[in-house]
Design a protein around this nucleic acid. Structure first.
Lengths: 149, 149
DNA sequence: CAGTATCCTCGCAGATACTG
DNA sequence: CAGTATCTGCGAGGATACTG
């Protein structure tokens, strides 16, 4: 096999990786957490080819991670949103990003921003509740950093 | 490009995915958290081909996620261990596994075990502190579940 | 036991062109 | 704007055989 087949492993981690472990999934979810929710928004943010993005969005919708609807004021424009299942990826995404902050981007440097684009230039940090049942409740705040303008 | 090049993206998440986002990395780290630390241990646990496992272990050592040393009592046997950088992957790994428990393996079912193999048949759960600076401190305990015998 | 060494396959992603 | 359609290709992963 070329691609991994992790579904044979009796492990939730393997199954999670199998469904959400591909490269773009986390980055698309990240963009949605930042307020980016349109096709071309993803495209310009990620530099991903349109066919790849399209395929990935279809799969994410099929897997119940995203939902899709027409924009209320512009019928031509589609808007994507995270489902509860998709939002539930936030804790692992955040943990992974913080790992990158700490161990790759360089210790001591400012953490990378997860700014809410909806506030325009305001750069209001967004707060994401990690309210999984077994995860200690709390809020995580992203401050402005040099990594992601 | 065939493989993703995420390093051009100015984002810690992208860089983290670039370094630790491949399929086997998390599963090898998971095994180490369970107490599996030898080449054939990984192999029989994961069903991974030996050349792939070898390549992956070399890369993980190169990236500073694993360390490697000879077994004290058996010079032929190598033992792998998580470095601090590798241990720091635990929170995201755990979050991802819990996501799989909740959203893929089936809601309401028992979460998958992360049992410590070192205790033999005892199935003592292991505790992993999520003590990242910005992550609310707490302990996560894995209970026995049907997924991973 | 802990890997190398070869060879191969095929899925993911990229480039590009096109459409409602 | 939001995609589809086609073609191409690389490289991770696999099968298998072999070694100190």
């Amino acid at each position: 096999m070329s691609r991994n087949r992790l579904d044979h492993l009796p492990c939730s981690l393997a199954r999670a990786l199998d469904e959400a472990g591909d490269w773009w999934t986390f980055l698309i979810v990240r963009d949605l957490l930042r307020g980016i929710n349109s096709f071309d928004g993803f495209q310009s943010s990620l530099g991903i080819a349109s066919n790849i993005l399209s395929r990935r969005l279809v799969k994410l919708c099929d897997d119940g991670i995203l939902s899709k609807r027409k924009d209320a004021s512009d019928g031509r424009r589609m808007r994507y949103a995270l489902t509860p299942k998709g939002e539930a990826l936030a804790p692992s995404l955040i943990a992974l990003m913080q790992w990158g902050d700490e161990w790759i981007s360089g210790r001591g440097r400012e953490p990378v921003i997860l700014a809410d684009k909806r506030t325009g230039g305001q750069l209001e940090p967004i707060r994401i509740r990690a309210d999984g049942a077994d995860v200690p409740a709390g809020e995580i705040e992203f401050r402005r950093g040099p990594g992601l303008a």
